[in-house]
């Protein structure tokens, strides 16, 4: 898995040697995966880019959390076999989608504004399969598995909360600058490019992995 953004080497060793209920470590690994997972973070940046009210931020981030929790738990517990490269490629495309959406291009091309809540929930489901494949790469001890997966999921949400806090503070400063609206366009073009680059990278990994 040289190309997929996975769990770091020492952490992998720990997961494979661990046995039974390991709630703290699995929560830590979930949080670490989220905080260091640029693909998830870029998508979050896109989602909250034009959300100025905390209530809206909470709504959209909850929808995202609901989506990725559902497929993370379902994916690991059912043993659904999804190709990690293809899932990560779609996750890259989700970043590009949100960039297009923020640029107002989806509305212009389609003639209507696709439901933003439905989109964040749907892409949340995809991100969850991505999280699931990271855990499925390992031999997991069946004993205590459900608790460990739940702990991993709780960790993912804690990590997302911490990362979101940093993003919101940084965006808070940025939004107060006079040039925000001008730079917003550039930033979302950058999101589209980064999204396509991530997707291309994963497709490359898929065809050579």
């Amino acid at each position: 898995m040289a190309f997929a953004h996975g769990v770091a080497g020492g952490d992998q060793l720990f997961i494979e040697q661990s046995t039974g209920s390991q709630l703290g470590p699995f929560a830590y690994l979930g949080a670490k995966h989220m905080v260091t997972g640029y693909d998830h973070l870029l998508f979050l940046v896109g989602v909250i880019f034009f959300l100025f009210r905390m209530r809206d931020v909470a709504t959209y981030v909850s929808l995202f959390a609901l989506g990725h929790s559902a497929t993370l738990l379902y994916g690991v517990l059912s043993g659904t076999d999804v190709n990690p490269f293809l899932v990560d490629a779609v996750i890259g495309l989700s970043v590009a989608y949100k960039g297009f959406d923020n640029l107002g291009l989806l509305k212009r091309w389609l003639g209507f504004q696709p439901n933003t809540k439905a989109a964040v929930l749907l892409f949340g489901l995809v991100h969850g399969f991505g999280l699931a494949t990271k855990l499925q790469d390992f031999k997991l001890d069946p004993e205590g598995l459900i608790g460990n997966i739940l702990a991993f999921n709780v960790g993912v949400e804690i990590g997302q909360f911490l990362a979101l806090g940093m993003i919101l503070i940084a965006m808070g400063f940025w939004r107060r600058t006079a040039s925000f609206t001008r730079h917003a366009r550039l930033a979302n073009i950058a999101l589209v490019i980064a999204g396509f680059a991530l997707a291309a990278y994963q497709v490359h990994g898929f065809s050579h992995g």
Binding site: F50, F52, R53, D56, G104, G172, R175, F180, R185
Partner: peptide, 16 residues
């Protein structure tokens, strides 16, 4: 939707 984000929405410094 009323709450949906829009790039055309003007920034209100008071709300930030």
């Amino acid at each position: 939707e009323p709450s949906s984000p829009s790039p055309e929405q003007p920034l209100d410094p008071e709300a930030l």
